[in-house]
Every structure is written in C-alpha cells, then in structure tokens.
C-alpha cells in the first residue's frame, strides 16, 4: 500500500482538531476531579457516575427548555449543560454529607491507613448504586441531546493544493469554548474569592485551617459538591455530541484519572491540560490503531504515566518509620 501523504496530513489535522475539542471537555471534567482530590485527598471512584448524572441532568433540562425554546434551539443544549452543574452540586453535597464525610477528614484519619481503603471502597459502592440505579431511573437505551449544531461543521480548506480539507464541528467547538470559560471562571474563583482561599487553606493544612476558624468539614463538602458539579457540566457538554447510557461513567473514570495524574495531582490548571492531552492522545491514536482500541490507548498511556511516576499519589513516598 502506497503512503498517501495528503490523506495522512488531512487525517492528522482532523484528529488534532477533534482531540483539542474533546480534550477541552475532558480537561473540564479533570478539573472537577482534581479539586476533590486536591482539597480532600480522596480518590472519588464515583466521579464518572456524577458525570453521567450531569449528562442526564442536561438531557432532562434540555427537554424542559425545549418546550419553551428559551434561548433558541442552538443555545439550549449549552444552557442545559450549565444547569446540570447546580443539580449535581446538590447531589454531590448530599452524598458527601451522608456518606463520604464518614470516612474522610478527621473521621477518616482515625481509620486504618487514614481511611484511604474505606474511601476507595465506599466510592466504589456509590458508583455501583449510581450506575445500576441509573439503569432503573433513566433506562438502558442510549439517549443523546440532538442539536442542529452537532451535525453542522465549518469547512476549512481546501488547503495544500486542493488535497486537504478539514471539518470543524460547530457544536463541539462551542462546547469546548464554554468548557474553557468555565475553567477560567473557576480558577479565578479559587484564586480571588474568600471561598477559594478557605478551600485552599483546608487543602494545604486541615489542622491549621481549623485553628484559623475555617470549617474544614464544610470546605470538604463544598469541594466535593463543586468537583462533582464541574465534572457534570463537562458531561452535559459532552452529552450533545454522542449518545450515552447509565454505564458511561466507568471509562471516563480512567480518562479523568489519566488527565489528573498527567497534570500533576492537586493542580487545577494542570488537570485541565492533562485532560486536554488525553483527548489528543485518544483522537491521535486512531491514526495508528483501530477505532475500537482508542480507549485501550488511553489506558496504556495512563499505566505508562503512573508507572513512570512511581513516587505515588501522596507526594514523596519517602519511607518513614
């Protein structure tokens, strides 16, 4: 088979565009996960399922908005995705209040290995309940948010002497722009506001934060709620692109952790770029691998990242007696 350079360039550019557009959404989701880990030092296994909740929240919000055509057919999906944020925030706060808080923070510190074991398994249980409960509540048939924009594209080209032409999906582009705006707004919130400062203080040194009069328990609850909400907005934006069902969260858990680990744990902006990179890896892998293996490529990249950074999640794993 002869190597067709123009075709390869076209595919490469097309994958790059697709990678950047999905990567921006992954980046947004990673920011949510990173916030939870950064503030609470908790691995939330159910993060993908909160994203799934976000998708369904957006789906139903879109249905309601559609009836009133609030901002018009084109903008409603994005408004619906943003509305998923507050809805999942409430769910996240409730889950933290009644379940997660019992094995984290001060109470977690009293448990075996500071509660890490209990946290992993508790959030696994929450993930199972959300996935399978979702099957009952939302049904198993895949659904999607259809918008005229998701099937229209800008046509760039022809370039390179008529031989290269790429399409940029309009729906995905708006979604990516909204994702970036949400990330920037969140970074500003964390940096400037009193809330952001108290969250960062609670993350930095919970004990000292308590002495400074910060309610660490509340800070954790808000971080968990915001983390779930941000990921849910990412899910809501993703929902207008592709069909989804209640089990969709699982593979995104790996995608999100790959991004967060890549970006450096606990770093919010790092998490965004980590997620962006994972999106690029996923799309570029289709140049070399069959499309069914694009998630396998992510898992391999994820394994490579964690194996090449053996210092472990909790900073220096310097062995102390």
């Amino acid at each position: 088979m002869e190597f067709d350079l123009p075709l390869f360039v076209e595919n490469l550019l097309q994958s790059l565009v697709a990678g950047l557009l999905t990567g921006a959404l992954y980046g947004l989701m990673c920011v949510g996960l990173s916030l939870i880990f950064g503030v609470m030092r908790v691995i939330n296994f159910a993060q993908g399922d909160f994203m799934m909740l976000g998708m369904y929240a957006a789906y139903y919000a879109f249905g309601l908005l559609g009836a009133h055509a609030l901002l018009g057919e084109a903008a409603d999906p994005y408004l619906a995705a943003l509305l998923a944020g507050p809805a999942v925030f409430v769910a996240g706060v409730a889950v933290h209040r009644f379940l997660v808080s019992r094995v984290t923070g001060m109470r977690g510190a009293a448990l075996e290995s500071e509660g890490h074991y209990a946290q992993l398994i508790l959030t696994l249980g929450i993930a199972l309940v959300l996935q399978n409960g979702g099957l009952f509540v939302f049904g198993s048939a895949p659904v999607s948010i259809s918008t005229p924009l998701s099937s229209s594209a800008w046509d760039i080209g022809p370039l390179y002497g008529d031989m290269v032409e790429i399409f940029v999906n309009q729906g995905q582009t708006y979604a990516a722009i909204i994702a970036v705006v949400v990330v920037i707004a969140f970074v500003l919130l964390m940096g400037r506001s009193r809330l952001g400062k108290s969250l960062r203080a609670a993350a930095d040194n919970p004990e000292a934060a308590v002495y400074m009069g910060i309610d660490v328990e509340r800070a954790h609850r808000l971080a968990f709620g915001f983390g779930c909400a941000i990921t849910a907005i990412g899910g809501g934006l993703l929902a207008s692109g592709s069909p989804f069902q209640p089990y969709v969260g699982l593979e995104y858990v790996i995608i999100m952790y790959a991004g967060v680990v890549l970006g450096g744990l606990g770093s919010v902006s790092g998490a965004f770029f980590g997620g962006l990179t994972i999106g690029l890896v996923q799309q570029l892998s289709t140049l070399f691998l069959p499309i069914q293996l694009q998630n396998t490529a992510i898992f391999v990249v994820f394994l490579a990242i964690v194996l090449l950074r053996p210092q472990g999640l909790f900073g220096a794993s310097l062995r102390r007696a």
């Binding site: 379940l99 019992r102 094995v103 448990l111 075996e112 209990a118 398994i121 508790l122 696994l124 249980g125 929450i126 993930a127 199972l128 309940v129 959300l130 996935q131 399978n132 409960g133 979702g134 099957l135 009952f136 198993s140 209640p246």
Partner: peptide, 20 residues
C-alpha cells in the same frame, strides 16, 4: 433493571460504614 448492582453497591456501602 440493574438491581443486582444496586444490591452489591448498598451492601458494600453498609459494610464500610457499619462493619468495616
């Protein structure tokens, strides 16, 4: 549908909270 997974999920949540 999915009650199997829900049962396992609830079982493990209950165990972690009540009898770790």
């Amino acid at each position: 549908p999915g009650i199997q997974g829900v049962v396992y999920g609830i079982a493990i949540i209950a165990v972690i909270l009540l009898a770790p």
